[in-house]
Simulated assay, not measured.
Amino acid sequence: MTETKSTRVVRRGRIFPEIQWTEEQKAQWETEGENLYQRCKPIFDKVKSELIETHYNWYMTVEPDSGEYFVDRDLEVVWLRCREKHPGKIHHTFRINETGACGTI
């Protein structure tokens, strides 16, 4: 018996084409993100001081329309909780620490 060799070509690199955004689309996306942050930040600031003592470096996801927030040690769990309660809504995630940021650049 003879063996047949596979002629399948392994694709390397990007599978999806790059998104081509205009400058206006980029500016709109950044503005929407900043607006979401500005709506969620007061909710985070209100509860940060009491949560920082017991849940330091945990994650907090805020849904701005309802004002509800979800806290968990695991980032994916906190996202899942928020999505289950508010499907289709956009939320913002903070880290419960002095800055609310997840890391430094």
Rank of each mutant, 00 (worst) to 15 (best):
S49T: 11
E50M: 07
E76N: 15
V77M: 10
V71I: 09
G33S: 08
G88N: 06
E30H: 07
L75E: 11
H92N: 09
D65G: 04
F94S: 00
R39S: 13
R81W: 12
M60Q: 08
P87N: 06
D45N: 12
Y59Q: 11
E84Y: 03
W58L: 04
T61P: 01
V71M: 03
S49W: 05
S66H: 03
R81K: 15
C82Q: 13
F44N: 03
K85R: 15
V71E: 02
N35F: 04
D65W: 02
L75V: 11
T61L: 09
V62R: 00
R83N: 13
Q25H: 06
K48T: 03
Q25V: 02
T54H: 06
L80G: 08
R81G: 11
V78L: 01
R95E: 09
K89N: 13
N35E: 14
R39M: 14
T31G: 01
L51E: 02
T54N: 07
H92F: 14
E34H: 07
L80E: 12
D74C: 08
I90F: 07
C40F: 06
D72I: 03
C40I: 01
E76Q: 13
S49K: 08
V78M: 00
K85C: 12
D45H: 05
S66T: 15
K89M: 12
R39W: 05
S49H: 11
K26V: 12
D72A: 13
E68A: 11
T61Q: 05
N35I: 13
H55R: 14
Y37Q: 07
E23D: 15
Q25L: 05
W79P: 00
V47W: 08
Y69K: 04
L75P: 02
L51V: 03
L75W: 10
H55I: 04
V77R: 14
P64S: 05
T61V: 15
C82A: 15
R39K: 15
